[in-house]
Amino acid sequence: MSDHGAATGTEVRVTGATETTVMTYAEAIRDALTTAMRRDERVFLMGEDVGRYGGAFGVTGDLVDRIGPDRVRDTTISELGIVGAGVGAAVTGMRPIVEIQFSDFTAQAMDQIANQAAKIHFMLGGAMQVPLVIRAPGGSGTGAAAQHSQSLEAWFAHVPGLKVLMPATADDAKGLLLSAIEDPNPVVVIEHKLLYKTPGQVRTGYATTPIGVASVRRRGADLTIVATGVEVSRSLEAAERLAADGIQATVVDPRTLKPLDSETIVREVISTGRVLLVQEAVKTLGFMSEVAAVIAESEAFVHLRAPVARLAGLDIPIPYAPQLERAAVPQVEDIVAAATRLVREW
């Protein structure tokens, strides 16, 4: 299916060309970086091994050859320095993008992210802006063990001043990144390591995806699945299997966690009366806990035919062993099972 789906209920604003081409999620990010850098000389990238090496996951690839080493800058192993220098560059009018090689290592940079980038505009009474983009791959499934596999989006969503984006398709990887670069606020873009090689139709040219607009990836009458990150494609695969079993699912991808498009979620929950919330991150106090509360506080409450259900990662560190790693987060068959129960039992 196309990235925005035949049944898309949300209008996607398309700026620039509407031609599309097939590229991977990683290539789409590189395309966004190239496009933004060619368009605006204030845009530059800093990170570990992003230059000649082409990025730990090959995302930057030949970007250094396209743009040059002045604006595709290799740094030392200093996450606090990378983000802090990015904050400094941002307040002086640059448009820095910083890459943290694994999102787990934002922990090394958290003071600059949470206490500086997120607070400066507020504490200076609006005198300065921090148009900083922090790109960081998260997620499990690559056999990278407990310190290289976490899904930390809730950390950032809990800090006022930060915007948090989680692209689930190649087109959104490009479109959301371009929007993040345009945005005058600090924006954390959580990419997913497992998605980097996933191909999709991607709009060519300067094609943004708006921040704060969810995407309805699929429509069905029996239940609504809300999923983020890698769980979006898993939910879509689960929906196909459910359809073969006579259960029709709507799949909503919020795309941006903060700001959150509550309106679309509530509307799509009302339309089916059942909702399954799927995230890879640990369950307790996760993003889907917030979505559950949004639904409970909304007019959707009286339309619910079943309790709100969450399917999430176990509340444990991600194990190294692949057999255990797989069991620690929702897989396609888990989504099928949870959705089936929700529909059959309610």
Partner: peptide, 18 residues
């Protein structure tokens, strides 16, 4: 491969209700 139970064994040092 380690047994499935290994998922939970050392999340905390002692029993944890969650």
């Amino acid at each position: 491969p380690p047994p499935r139970e290994r998922l939970f064994r050392h999340a905390y040092t002692d029993a944890h209700p969650l």
